[in-house]
Amino acid sequence: MTNKTHGYLIVLFDSTSAALLAERLLNRKSIAYKIIPVPRRLSSDCGVCLRILEEDRLAVEEAFKGAVDVQAICCLESKITSDIG
């Protein structure tokens, strides 16, 4: 079994609308992601965010450039140790 949080990054946005716009951009570039509720330990925002693979970070940033503002990209391992599915 691998650690569930290993190799993932969390991308936070200003609003749910921005997160869902970001999803559309990733779909177009065929970049893997998962929409998840914002982990409470990262932010008190009750919206959703995107979980991406660590190795896709540059491609993701490129896909979002000029199209949607990212609030933060967080490393899961450093801040969270469990319960992100």
Partner: peptide, 22 residues
């Protein structure tokens, strides 16, 4: 309700809205 919860149907509702915006 779009964008109010993280569950699948709320996300689907949010997608409905973002597609309309686009």
């Amino acid at each position: 309700n779009p964008g109010r919860s993280g569950h699948r149907q709320s996300i689907e509702a949010g997608r409905t809205i973002i597609e309309a915006r686009e």
